[in-house]
Design a protein around this nucleic acid. Sequence first.
DNA 1: GCCCAGGAGAAGG
DNA 2: CCTTCTCATGGG
Length: 298
Amino acid sequence: MEKKWKLETDGGKLMVADVADFDLDHIFDCGQCFRWEKNADGSYSGIAFGKPVRISYDKDDRVLSIYGADVADFESVWRTYLDLDRDYGQIKRSLCEKDPVVGKAIEFGQGIRILNQEKWETLLSFLISQNNNIPRIKKCIHSLAETMGEKAGDFEGKTYYNLPSAERLAAASATDLAPCRLGYRAKYLIETAKQVRAHGIEALEHLGSDTVSSEEAFEALKGYCGVGPKVANCIALFALGKFDRFPIDVWVKKVMHQMYGIAEHDMSAMAEFATEAFGEYGGIAQQYLFYYITHHGA
DNA sequence: GCCCAGGAGAAGG
DNA sequence: CCTTCTCATGGG
């Protein structure tokens, strides 16, 4: 199960050999994360688990390079965060066999991987995401980190900040958050932060355990203020490892109607179809479909 | 001015 | 259970 990775370090750079089914644009520009920025050379700079890095990938020799990371960081963060131990080739073949239509989307976004993101950060991010667009979501999260978060460190000429803790956010007022331009979502952040503080952050962390079923995690997430079915599914998929969740947003509605002919507003029919057609990898299928409908021309 | 964006909550059927 | 309205903000 556990793959043995060939690692090399060179200065402040970590190199991982023989990484397949991997494309930085597909991974970082498919709407699952909001804290990575593309550089002119095609690499991406960002931060996860308090560690700012820059990541590049060479398609020809299949080498993944992480600038600012060492072997210990790879084992503690990046190996899991980038979901490197999962065989996406196998998953893609399985999905294509079950449903040739999704095969078209898989061919288009073949390098997508589902990141294993921080739970609290993902909860905040998708609270902000509702009825919002991706460029503005990124701005809001960046602003929230800079105005209320603690400094994580300097890297390649930029200062990186963590998102504010639940304690910090629970103690904040709507006025404190006003500069972040979150709109009506600000009160959801504060109320959810109070809930997390009251229940304990462990209650949220525990939802990522294998002993908690996908459905149980989904229901528990909906208990947080401002978390409905769509946001709960995103958190379960992007931070809790529940790969069968199938978040349905305006884009997925569009693609399900266009590619499968399902009635435009029939969410239950879409969810049912996803369970039937994609099963335990519904969330991965959803990301290929989302990337396809948001990026393919015409 | 209008419509839209990785929607949710409240009110009223 | 369902439907409809409202909630800030900024970009096209």
